[in-house]
Design a protein around this nucleic acid. Structure first.
Lengths: 213, 213
DNA sequence: CGGGTGTTTGACGTCTGTCAAAAAGCGTGG
DNA sequence: CCACGCTTTTTGACAGACGTCAAACACCCG
């Protein structure tokens, strides 16, 4: 369980403990997933919406020959699981050790205005991502990704990437090699700093911003 | 007005007539737009949702240097104008002579379950389009586009493309030249037939389907 | 201190983009 | 109804960014 690629807080450990030990018949509030495990699969009956308690989730889809597109990443506090129709259209997997909490609402029913807003926000994100993937070069795509991750982590200068390079590549419509080379070039130019492979410090945010115009 | 690139039915002419001649103070039910005119612009205050009565609408976004991504096309009967937040995130333009009818609902408020379903459907479409743009080659993208257009036109063998090549290119994340070459190759292989530039007959739908796996 | 996964780097190929010009459509006007 | 001119589309030649294949390297965990 501690094989998670990211540090686990005491609260998260506690959550794990509950999930593992307690034997209630009613489902536990938080469900826990190990790194790399499936939350739901394409084709399944659409279930509920979820909030990420800790960890990170990737939503993706596959082509017949294995090509993969990561549709979205979801970090702590974010909601996922919206569907249009009765079945799951995508796969959802835990990237690192992850806890999620089911919302009362079903995937296709937006009961409250808050949920509607979240659904519309999800649509917007997907549509904006279309511009990135459809019309920007590798360097610009990586810049957009880094800025997006930074914004979702409180606009800190140093950000943690919970996902491996291959996920970033599949999210940006690139190959792992291109992502790696782009990171390397940005580092060489002093735009970013890499501490290990999952930690990035944005040294020249203005240049990254400029790349996303 | 007859400069529209697509034939205009008597009902459409009638609608135009009303729009042009009547001087009511209350807004007319159907609003008419000439080919190429703006329906709303990025940055505007988000208004209402619209249903396309006839014609076709493109939703798009621009980068600073003019690169453009077409997010979606909307044909007769389809609803557009969803927004997440108070302002328009994209441009909406009439492709051909187009009539749209405002729904009562505002862009950010999904009053009814029907509207929620439409919003979720829009999200799904955008997410599926991510896979096409992010992971498929030119040939596969064009195949996906043709099948999508066919499905939305009653799965007829012959489909009408209301948009010029440049819109298709910007929708698929390609250049106009690549789209043209891909069409040419498909025609040479007997997969499609082109009658004029806006009319396509799908001769071997199975091959197109196979390309989208 | 290894072994395995994940990442980086290198060499090379190719698909798509770019630039340019010809051809085809389409609307206008004679 | 046909000729003209503009726009859109097609075609061609060439270039470049990114993908592919392969190997070295780093990191993580036992």
């Amino acid at each position: 369980m501690q094989s998670a690629a990211i540090k686990v807080s005491p609260a998260q450990i506690r959550s794990y403990g509950i999930g593992v030990s307690a034997g209630f018949i009613r489902p536990l509030v938080t469900r826990n997933y190990l790194a790399g495990t499936e939350i739901y699969a394409q084709g399944e009956l659409a279930g509920e919406l979820y909030v990420v308690e800790f960890g990170a989730v990737r939503i993706h889809r596959l082509l017949a020959d294995g090509r993969r597109q990561v549709i979205a990443f979801h970090l702590a506090g974010e909601t996922f699981g919206f569907e249009s129709g009765g079945t799951r259209t995508f796969f959802a997997e835990a990237i690192t050790a992850t806890g999620i909490r089911p919302l009362g609402a079903a995937a296709g029913n937006l009961g409250t205005p808050e949920l509607m807003a979240l659904a519309l926000r999800g649509m917007l994100k997907a549509q904006e991502h279309l511009l990135v993937i459809g019309r920007q070069c590798a360097r610009e795509r990586v810049a957009a990704f880094l800025l997006d991750m930074a914004e979702r982590q409180g606009d800190d200068v140093t950000i943690e990437l919970p996902m491996p390079r291959i996920d970033i590549a599949d999210y940006l419509g690139l190959t792992i090699e291109t992502v790696s080379r782009t990171f390397a070039k940005m580092r060489a130019q002093g735009i970013i700093e890499l501490r290990g492979t999952r930690s990035v410090t944005l040294k020249k945010r203005d240049i990254l911003t400029e790349l996303c115009r």
